[in-house]
């Protein structure tokens, strides 16, 4: 597994190939991750709201989406998009750009997970709080802004950071369809030269560079969400003087 990992000649070969293989791959992975995360967030928020809405039909649609996507492998979904989507659009040699394929694949897959995260976040705040707020004269928006959202965000932020981390990891699936991402270039360079230890080690470090800050962020958010809320100090004195 680490045979020849400390071979200087192999490392210099890797550094020579670095700008040509690893940099474009790394950038592609970053781009797919960012746009994919945006797509996943949009889908997640939409379907998360669907599943907590009053209409039964929307609930059912959201349930089907979540269950179906969560219980089938991402590899299968990407393969399906890869071979079926181009043929649906035209019979001629039209090919979907790999970037779009990656964004759709990762976005739809993690959208299902994020939708579950958002649903649990909304359900976690008891209904009594909205009623209590209404009884105290809060409007709907005020209730949301001052009472519900601060609690919901605290609950959903740690799992969201985790999902972002998994999303970056899952972009590697594009290597299966020659997606020009980091994993693909690693695979092709490694197989080209046979310097597998160098190729995969470098790639692992590059993924680690993206993912580790996300993992730290998730941990930090988790610790922060466990802290009890502190009441804000109100500036009542000034108000009384004004009256």
């Amino acid at each position: 597994m680490i045979k020849g990992l400390f071979d200087g000649k192999r490392w210099s070969a890797l550094f020579a190939a670095f700008p040509e293989y690893y940099i474009p791959g790394f950038l592609m992975t970053l781009k797919i991750s960012l746009v994919g995360l945006a797509v996943a967030l949009v889908l997640g928020v939409i379907f998360g709201m669907f599943s907590s809405s009053k209409w039964k039909l929307l609930k059912i649609i959201s349930r089907i989406y979540v269950e179906f996507i969560q219980n089938t492998p991402l590899a299968l979904q990407v393969m399906c998009y890869y071979s079926v989507l181009p043929m649906l659009f035209s019979s001629s040699g039209f090919r979907i750009p790999k970037f779009v394929l990656g964004v759709i694949g990762v976005g739809v897959y993690h959208g299902a997970y994020i939708s579950e995260v958002i649903r649990t976040g909304i359900e976690a705040v008891p209904k009594g709080q909205s009623e209590a707020a209404a009884s105290q004269g809060f409007s709907y928006l005020e209730t949301m802004y001052h009472i519900i959202l601060p609690q919901t965000i605290k609950i959903i932020m740690p799992p969201l950071a985790n999902q972002a981390l998994n999303l970056v990891k899952n972009t590697s699936i594009l290597a299966m369809v020659a997606g020009m991402d980091l994993m693909y270039f690693t695979d092709s360079w490694g197989a080209d030269r046979g310097y597998f230890a160098q190729a995969y080690f470098t790639s692992a470090v590059m993924y680690f560079i993206i993912c580790f800050p996300l993992a730290r962020l998730a941990r930090y958010l988790e610790i922060r969400s466990m802290r009890l809320p502190v009441a804000k100090k109100l500036d009542i004195q000034a108000d009384e003087e004004a009256v």
Binding site: M1, K169, N170, T171, I173, D187, F196, F208, C211
Partner: peptide, 19 residues
């Protein structure tokens, strides 16, 4: 931490080609 932050596919390929 290291395995959590690197893709699973990478490990499968690495192990497959070298072990």
């Amino acid at each position: 931490e290291f395995f959590r932050c690197t893709p699973n596919l990478l490990w499968i390929l690495w192990i497959y080609f070298t072990v």
